[in-house]
Design a protein around this nucleic acid. Sequence first.
DNA 1: GATGAATGAGCTTTCATTCAT
DNA 2: AATGAATGAAAGCTCATTCAT
Lengths: 203, 203, 203, 203
Amino acid sequence: MARISKEEKKIAIMLQALKLFSKEGFYTTTIPDIAKALGMSVGNLYNYFKSKDMLAQEIIKYISSYLGNELRKINETNLTTREKIHRIVRIYFETAQNEPEMIEYFLRVYLANREVFKEGCEGMICVSDFVTEIMIFFEEGVRKGDLRDQDFFSAFGLFMGYLGGMVFLHGEKVLPEALAFYIDDITENIYRALKVEDKVHED
Amino acid sequence: MARISKEEKKIAIMLQALKLFSKEGFYTTTIPDIAKALGMSVGNLYNYFKSKDMLAQEIIKYISSYLGNELRKINETNLTTREKIHRIVRIYFETAQNEPEMIEYFLRVYLANREVFKEGCEGMICVSDFVTEIMIFFEEGVRKGDLRDQDFFSAFGLFMGYLGGMVFLHGEKVLPEALAFYIDDITENIYRALKVEDKVHED
Amino acid sequence: MARISKEEKKIAIMLQALKLFSKEGFYTTTIPDIAKALGMSVGNLYNYFKSKDMLAQEIIKYISSYLGNELRKINETNLTTREKIHRIVRIYFETAQNEPEMIEYFLRVYLANREVFKEGCEGMICVSDFVTEIMIFFEEGVRKGDLRDQDFFSAFGLFMGYLGGMVFLHGEKVLPEALAFYIDDITENIYRALKVEDKVHED
Amino acid sequence: MARISKEEKKIAIMLQALKLFSKEGFYTTTIPDIAKALGMSVGNLYNYFKSKDMLAQEIIKYISSYLGNELRKINETNLTTREKIHRIVRIYFETAQNEPEMIEYFLRVYLANREVFKEGCEGMICVSDFVTEIMIFFEEGVRKGDLRDQDFFSAFGLFMGYLGGMVFLHGEKVLPEALAFYIDDITENIYRALKVEDKVHED
DNA sequence: GATGAATGAGCTTTCATTCAT
DNA sequence: AATGAATGAAAGCTCATTCAT
């Protein structure tokens, strides 16, 4: 018997839609597609989400919350800044490898189809859980004297653009190696980019 | 007199479509929208491009060729590697600032709607002009002993992901400053990430 | 109450489309035409048939089944071969007179627009119910010693070509008399053409 | 240099259109298709025929004239009625085998798409050359005492329906043999159907 | 005679959403 | 909660025909 709660069903719908949106694209996935994949009726789906756009918005919030939570765990450790970067890169790539739909959704649905998120996700409010944790990581690195105190967005853009770019290349099957292969190189590159000056001279 | 050639008209169509696709999205821009913006008939548009997808593909080739050409000019100078990075970042951001549709198209149409480019733009063949120049820049930096000889994609992902990420944030109106403001910071970050080890110690 | 079942509605659509296709032609009848004649929406029509071609194919199967059934009744009687021919000619002409759309559809839609039936009605599979009964009639006539044992297609072509030709002339309003007028002549002609040699001399 | 006359060019266009219409269907063949196949421009084609429908009508007249001429030659011989039937069947099947487009056009374009010929080919005026010769053949057969004096259309329908039906089956690749194989059988069937009673008893 | 770019109405098909049951 | 038939606006695309050159 064990009835499924309305909240659980919402999540089940979101996960299925996430899978389809990220794989087939937002506009090329239809509501009937989603309903059929879930074995439920179109009409009933509308009992849970009042439009296709709203469904898309709830999904990005869900992803942001999920990833933010992973980052929070890292932020709460006592690891060095460099090790934290390593962990973040790893968590991001592992997610991209094992549950590619999350990162793909972020890159290909959320970032690309702004009209869908225009009303309801203004600014970064639908991804704030995630951004906040990156911000915390960065500020702590600065406070501990490990990272240069530069403009947050210069650092954030580096971090997320870099990781996003790699996952994109991976999705394009353009990378000759698995994502895991690049973790060390990328950690190194990010760390070098953000860390405080080396004590001695500099070109 | 001075009639417009068929090739010139094709380009005029591409530029208009580029504008609309990048601003409104590929699926939310209709062929009638494009035709109306050009003051021409829907049917005639199909005398120039045999489908909406083909139009989209020709546009990305056009952009890649345009940006590749700008990069080639930089590659052909005698500037130092660091100065070249600075120029590349600047050219990219200037383009994003002055002709934002090109970069937006790249990020939001080409990267996001893979189904549109699946047949005809396999791999990176529709953006090869651009990628090739980045590759040339990188390899020359390595050859001159300025850049570490790491995996090309680790470097490419950093470069393009970073710049793309910043432009995205700019497009989201999330950046507190104009793009130009970040040029120096970003040049610095990229250079630090890619350059060879400092002669002395290093963590 | 007494709701109409989905299957019944499919048939209602087919009958209406049959009427329009046969009267106005396949390409000159539009889906909106059919929907309007049925008082339903265009979109809903596509809930029953997934394309215009599929609709056309289901109609020919329906006709073949209907006519095949009529022929089966004749084949199951104990009438003489000659009487059977008479009945078949009569049933065909009566159908052409009272429900002309069926025969017209056969002649003008199915036989003429092969591209529509190319995929899905290969060979004669969409008209097999009908062809099978003609075959049965012919083979029994041979077995009983009434008809010459000639190539099936020579006989089939005579039968169907003749009847089709007459209905065509009738449709063209070229015949000075009603179809019924010709039943006896035609029966006689067919019978003479197919029956076994007369016992005595021969031209 | 030998310039081509306007009339010759009209015929060249008709022959090419005939080929395409009969093979691809009237509605599925476009004017640009025809122009391209002829290596001429769309606009120029309209200098020869003022509409697609008019082109189609001129073609059927051309075919009717061509076939009528063949029949006239047969009618002018001194052959027996039976031999004439044999010749007519043969000429028809040979045409269907060697220049299938003519017969196919007759069956699939002219007979099927009445709306195209409604205005301009009322009744049988566009095929009168051909029909007239059949009529002459039949009346002479009657006059010579070879054929029963039955309604003309009963005889005409048999003749043309039968031959048309066989060619159709041939076009469908349903016939196990080449058309020539059936000439004798069919001649026999037609002759038996139409000839005067055998002197002695009868069924 | 010849060209082919241009028109624009109209086609088939799709799909988010609603609502009677 | 659940169903899925029904809606209808709108999409991409086609094509007979025209006309300036």
